[in-house]
């Protein structure tokens, strides 16, 4: 896996952990351990998202107007895996 995909995967893993705990919190809103873990994974994900976007371009539209070009239209889009070639 190249460095770009590696970093994306690290971010994705943290974001997914936060999402899975989010579902748990919806039905266990007072669980202190889950609240702490959710905050932790969100913080970690945010740092990794910033790092990825600085190096490789926007993941969300609010980070896309950097410098003098509109990064949002830059590929690859998430389904455009080229590894088979």
């Amino acid at each position: 896996m190249n460095e770009r995909n590696q970093l994306l995967q690290e971010y994705n893993t943290m974001k997914f952990a936060a999402h899975d705990i989010l579902l748990f919190l919806d039905t266990h809103p007072f669980n202190a351990e889950a609240l702490k873990a959710f905050a932790h994974y969100c913080r970690t994900a945010k740092v990794l998202k910033n790092e990825y976007e600085m190096k490789y371009g926007a993941l969300t539209v609010d980070s896309a107007a950097v410098g003098n070009s509109w990064q949002w239209i830059d590929g690859p889009w998430p389904w455009q895996y080229k590894g088979g070639k």
């Binding site: 997914f16 539209v61 889009w77 590894g83 088979g84």
Partner: peptide, 17 residues
């Protein structure tokens, strides 16, 4: 909703089928 430019879990298929 807002879109994020990645899949929830990566899809990397090498062989068409």
């Amino acid at each position: 909703w807002s879109y994020e430019k990645q899949l929830q879990y990566p899809v990397r298929i090498k062989k068409p089928d």
